[in-house]
């Protein structure tokens, strides 16, 4: 459950400045930016996502390598993606 998955930012300033929309494996959802607040987050940036929060910014090479590494682990990555895709009431913005 400590898995962090890389996602690419597709929209910033979602709901308010504390959130951004990211895409992971073709699925989009909003994530909280409270832990990366000390650096600017822009569309196209890669973030390491853990339980709906960006815990770090990643450079592109590291992000692509991590996605590739995790995708090979099969079941665990798929479970994380399924959980990432699960939304409460069809809306995930608070």
């Amino acid at each position: 459950m400590c898995l962090g998955i890389p996602g690419i930012v597709t929209k910033v300033g979602v709901n308010d400045a504390e959130f951004a929309e990211v895409e992971v494996s073709s699925i989009r959802r909003t994530v909280h930016l409270g832990m990366v607040a000390d650096s600017s987050v822009e569309v196209g940036d890669w973030l390491l996502i853990h339980v709906g929060f960006a815990i770090a910014k990643l450079d592109e090479d590291e992000a692509i390598r991590t996605v590739d590494f995790q995708a090979q682990s099969g079941k665990d990555y798929q479970q994380e993606i399924d959980a990432f895709a699960s939304l409460i009431g069809g809306e995930d913005q608070i």
Binding site: M1, C2, G52, I55, S86, I88, I94
Partner: peptide
Amino acid sequence: YSPLDALKLAIDHPDKEVVFFAIGFETT
């Protein structure tokens, strides 16, 4: 998936008490 989902449930169900069973190390 996220503690924020539990908070969203609470907002959507003001008549209920929503409790998030939180576990994890400093990552979470």
